[in-house]
Simulated assay, not measured.
Amino acid sequence: MSFLERKLNRKLFFYKYIYGIKTQPCTSCAGTGRYDSGRSPYCGACEGSGKEEYRGPKALKNIQTDKNLLEEIKNIEKDFLE
């Protein structure tokens, strides 16, 4: 695997799992992190943090473009090695 392929794989991972993720107050616990007041268990929806993650509008914008670039780089390397 070449450097450019590894670089594009890292970029795809970033865009797929990290880029564009935002947080909002949890709807099940109203942002408290627990189901009820007092000694109730931690919220299962947000794992006790009080915030839920959701994908923003720009989260999936660049994934298809990067997949096309990865295919182009593979073709260029194939031509170069021949």
Rank of each mutant, 00 (worst) to 15 (best):
R55M: 10
E47N: 12
P57C: 00
G48Q: 08
E52L: 15
R55Y: 12
G20F: 09
A59G: 13
K58Q: 14
K22F: 10
A59P: 08
A59N: 11
P41H: 00
R34P: 00
L60A: 05
R55I: 03
G31D: 07
P25T: 12
G31M: 07
S28H: 12
P57K: 09
L60Y: 08
Y35M: 04
Q24I: 14
E52K: 11
G48P: 07
Y19Q: 12
T27C: 03
T23D: 14
S40V: 01
P25Y: 10
R39L: 06
R34S: 01
I21D: 13
A45L: 10
F13Q: 09
P41V: 00
G38I: 03
R39T: 05
S37P: 07
T27R: 07
G38P: 02
P57E: 08
Y42K: 07
Y19E: 14
L60P: 00
K51I: 11
C46A: 11
C43V: 02
P25W: 07
K22Y: 12
Y35V: 05
K16P: 00
G33M: 06
R39H: 04
G38R: 04
P57A: 08
G38T: 02
Y54D: 01
Y15T: 00
F14I: 00
C43R: 02
Y35D: 00
K16Y: 05
K22H: 13
F13H: 14
P41F: 00
I18Q: 14
C26T: 13
R34K: 15
A30M: 07
C43T: 04
T23W: 09
P41C: 00
R34M: 04
F14M: 01
K51N: 15
C43Y: 02
R34C: 00
S40L: 00
S37W: 10
G50S: 10
A30F: 10
K51T: 14
Y17H: 14
G50N: 09
G44C: 02
Y19M: 06
R55D: 12
S28N: 13
R55V: 05
E52P: 01
Y19N: 11
Y35K: 04
G56V: 05
K58S: 12
S40D: 01
Y54V: 05
E47A: 09
G50H: 09
G56E: 06
Y17V: 05
I21K: 15
R55N: 10
Y15C: 07
C43Q: 01
T32S: 12
R55L: 13
